[in-house]
Each structure stands twice: as C-alpha cells, then as structure tokens.
Design a protein around this nucleic acid. Structure first.
Lengths: 253, 253
DNA sequence: CGACAAGTTGACGCACGTCAAGGCCGGTGG
DNA sequence: CCACCGGCCTTGACGTGCGTCAACTTGTCG
C-alpha cells in the first residue's frame, strides 16, 4: 500500500526496433510495417520506483503501458482497507487497457520493483484497430490471456487449501518469469513480501507465514533479501495440482 | 455437473435485423453495414436444455456463441471434483472467445436454463477484425468487461465474509438481469441452486445454506421453485459493500 | 543508537467445513 | 391410486483451518 506516485518520464530512449524484450523467444515476430506502427505509437518511457502507484482505481489514465522491465501487481481495495491482489504484471504485459476501453480504471497498479514502462496514447488505439487488424487481434488475445490467468486464480482462492494456494501462486509466478528468460540454472527470484502473498491468496498474514514455513521446510522455496526464491517449481505445481502454463509465443505490443 | 450434451441446431431462424435483444436500451446501436456483416457472420441458432454442457474444458470449439436467451455459467473443475464457478452467462454475452483466440478452452460452460445461442464460425473472426475495426474494438471491449467482472468476483471470494459474498453475488446477478430488462416491479428470478452459489463463493453447501437463511430472514431474498428471488437489491449491495454495476450501453455482436 | 519494515511464533477463538439425518416436492411406474 | 425415488433445501452436532492479538526477532538504514 505504498503511496508516493513518483514517476519520471523520459524521452523516447529505445526505439521499438531495438527493444530488448522483443528478441526473446516468447514473443512472436512482427511484420516490418507492424513494428513501424508500434514504434510510432510509442510516446516515451516511464521509470517508476519500487512501491509507487502507477495507475489509480477510479482514474481515467490517458495512457496505455507495456512493461519493459520490473514487476508490478494489480489490486482492488475495499473502503475499510481490505486489499485483494488480482494478478501480477511482468515484462511484456499491457496495462491500462481497461481505462482505454471502458473509460475508468476499476483497479490500481503498484510497482514491486523499479519498473520501466513504454507508454502509448490511448487515443491512437482506435487507429491501431483501423490500420492493423492483426495487432488489434493481438490486443484481444492479451486480454483473453489475462482472463485465463484470473480464472485459474479464482479457482485457487475459491477451492484450494492454504498450502495448495501458496504453492500455486509461487509456481505460477516462477513459471511466468522462466518464460521471460530467467536463468534456468538458478532459482527464480520473486520480489514480493508475505503480505503480498496473503493479499493474493485471501489469507491472513500470520497464516500465510505459517504456510510458507511448511513449503520452506520442504525446501521448495526460501525467503531471502525481501523476496521469495522458488527452488522447485515442479514440486510446487504438484502440491497445488496445477497443470502449468500452457503457453506459446505471444504478441508484444 | 449435468452431463448430457443434448443440443439441437436449427437453421437461421431470426435474422439479426430482427434480433429481439438488440432493441433493448443496454445495447448500442449498430451501423447498417455492421449489422449486415454480423448477419452474414451468423451461422445459425442452437437450442440447449437446462443442465447440458455447451463448451468443454480442453476442447477446441469451432464456434463462437452469443447468448440470445437463458442463463448459463462458466466453471473449472479440479481432478478430484472440486468445482469453481467463474462467472455467469446472460443474454448478450459472448462465449467461446477463448477457444477462438488462444486455441483451447480452459473452462467449461453449462446451461442453467433452456438457452438459445447464436453461433458464428470462429474462422471468420479474423475477417471481422479486418473489415470492421469498430466491431473488433467491441469484441475487445467485451473481453475487458468480463475481466472486470472477474476482478470483482476475486475480491469477493478473497476478501469478503460469507454473508458479504452471498449478498454480493445475488446483487450482482440481479443487477445484470435488471439491465437486460427484467420487470422492475417484480423480484428478479435467478435460476440457480444453492450448490451453484456455494461453488461460486468458495463455500461449502451447508454453510451456504445457513448464510442464505440469514439473508432470507431479513427478507432480502427468497428461494422458490428451484430459483432464487432477489427481493431487495440495494440492501444486498449495502451488505456486500458493493458499489454496483457502473455499466453503460454495450455492444452486441 | 533508535526507528522501521518484514519475518516468526504462541495462545486462543471463531467462521467455516464435515458428517449425518430428515423434510419437501415433483416425476415415474406399478 | 399410492410407493418409491432423486433433487434440493434444512438443521444439529462436532471438529478444524484459519483469523486475531500480541510479542519477539532480525536486518537495514539513518
């Protein structure tokens, strides 16, 4: 629940052609004209600090963002302070689409680590739909993927036990980080606190801690340096009875 | 968890121009050329019985559907039988988009009442994107709306108490039915059982029943004829601390 | 050195799950 | 016509997973 909204806008530093993300195998190849359009679509870059709020529930952001670096999370707050984390945001994810489509954000987004965001004008989204149906299709594809992740999350919170839930979310985040190219030889590092885990799983902080201890005792995870290290993804997935991410290449807008 | 997949395909009975749904005020007006395209996009109608499964998790359906009549629900099953209901399907909702985009369904859909579905070829979705950017935008809009509903649902299951959750889901479904034109003078009838409610809220059947009784004792709802009658939406929304559906007109594909 | 953020642990209570039984009602079949 | 059955709602008794309260630890930053 960090508050400072310290952001820093930077001129267009990296043209999309040299995007450090795009060459990674998870992302599909773009046609030259698509790439040219996206390049023109890009308005600049934004650097945000750890803990700052990028998008506010209730606001009407004028921008769409694609994450270039760092971790964040989407969440909703109730008037009495209860918080539910809806999903996590990793490089390649698109955020702020809701505001661009429906008009108003119904959730907030915070940065878990320093983040670098690509920003786009929401005005030009319609133009994208008109001129590049393939990219428009991709935007819908991304929205549908987000829905799939939410579905699995809902199953987790609704029907899995505390240990299963905890195992699921850590396996899930670790799998996502792996797809983006995290070193396969070393444990994935997830920059969250146990409070984040609690608010994701719908558990109290204390019970989350006890649950984490069970997983740590089995050497499936470890907490170090204000982050969670995932030591054994497969074992976690097995504990959660989770089938894993059935994911192929995806678009990067 | 009904099993018979009894469906009955019918020739193109109602042309979209005479769609009984479209005139309702919730749906936005289409341009004549859009309407003509959607009309040609339509492949036929499907009538399904109460309790039948329309879409199967793991399948690759060749069709997209828009609901014309009736209620249904989306859900996921775990291998040991645990079920989580993700959302409900009402007239005007689009289903099967996931299979059309990502390739494979990650959830199933069952009919809660007799349903009539409009069917479309998924092949032609790309054509829609190419020829009618406005409609493509609408498809994304619908996907984003589904995401919003899931977000609220997740907040509910993760952070609300049993009574709050129950009040929320009933207020939510009632509000959706109202938008579609349910008679304002009489209580909304939601064709679900308490087992459905339990599987939506992540509660046991017994505890759901006790929770329902609390709401019934306060005359907020009543169970009759295998359905739930919502007597006081506003009171339910207040119990759940829910702000209500902030919904305006939406597209109908 | 104090202050603060985050993890850890124990004691205790409650919200919710589980098991079990029974009631109501419409449908089916002799 | 009644006997039976299965689906759904209801209720009681009892157990437990998780929440709450409260304290202590550890590390980091000034």
């Amino acid at each position: 629940m960090a508050e400072e909204t310290a952001k820093r806008a930077v001129g267009k530093t990296t043209p999309c052609v040299n995007c450090p993300l795009r060459p990674r195998p998870v992302f599909r190849n773009f046609e030259p004209d698509e790439l040219a359009f996206v390049s023109g679509f890009k308005r600049g870059e934004l650097v945000v600090e750890r803990g700052s709020t990028i998008l506010h529930e209730g606001s009407r952001s004028a921008h769409l963002h694609t994450v270039l670096q760092g971790w964040g999370f989407r969440y909703k707050l109730m008037s009495d302070g209860r918080r539910q984390i809806l999903n996590y945001i990793l490089p390649g994810d698109l955020i702020g689409l809701q505001a661009s489509l429906v008009g108003e954000m119904e959730h907030s987004v915070d940065a878990l680590s320093p983040m670098v965001l690509c920003t786009f004008d929401r005005e030009r989204l319609r133009e994208l739909y008109v001129r590049f149906p393939g990219l428009a299709f991709d935007v819908t594809w991304l929205a549908s993927r987000e829905e799939q992740m939410l579905d699995e999350n809902l199953l987790s919170v609704g029907r899995r036990s505390a240990v299963e839930r905890a195992a699921y979310i850590l396996a899930f985040l670790s799998a996502r980080a792996r797809l983006l190219g995290a070193r396969p030889d070393e444990p994935v590092r997830i920059p969250i606190t146990q409070q984040h885990v609690a608010d994701t799983l719908g558990l109290s902080l204390v019970h989350t801690n006890r649950t984490m201890k069970k997983l740590a005792d089995r050497h499936l995870i470890a907490w170090r340096d204000g982050a969670c290290q995932v030591l054994d993804v497969d074992a976690l997935a097995a504990v959660a009875r989770w089938r894993g991410l059935g994911e192929r290449t995806r678009p990067l807008i």
